[in-house]
Amino acid sequence: MIKDFAKGLWKENPVFVQVLGMCPTLAVTTKALFGLSMGLATTFVVVSSGLVISSIRRFVPDQVRIPMFTVIIATFVTAADYFLKANFFQISKALGPYVPLIVVNCLILGRAEAFASKHGVARSGLDALGMGVGFTCALVVLGACREILGAGTVFGARIMGEGFTNWIIMVLPAGAFITLGLLVGGFNIIDKKVSKKKG
């Protein structure tokens, strides 16, 4: 049971290992806060759709499985979008169309298809939660890197000295790609060292 949760954090991390759900990962991480919000919204959707799908999995005809999952996911995404608009207006404005784009985040349909449609409610919930948390962590790390170099702050708090010139490239699309590429590389190095120690 614990394993279902833990694998999403490191071994099968959706961003660094599976390279899934790239468009929100790259698009919204100009600031750590936006990464965190997007991560939490995605976690909400992946967990709640995972729970619903695993509890109705026996009644779902195989042929229309995918459209049904998609409708369920889109429903939760709409709910998340309206919730953000109602309670966190500024954040929702900054995330813009990337909140509805959670619908097509391959991570969510992937978990529904590969795990929730085959396992019980409790395990599916844990699996989804692990993936969601892993996704959120990755987004926050990426957002923090880009915010530190691109704006000299983290979560809005200034950490670079006054003399620091912002690297505007970091908040532009190109910076997103390059930072993530390097982070994936760094992840692989650490992963290899850790598994060598164990082995």
Partner: peptide, 9 residues
């Protein structure tokens, strides 16, 4: 959801 959120929005 819509009825809950739209007045707040």
């Amino acid at each position: 959801v819509y009825n809950y959120a739209s007045p707040k929005i």
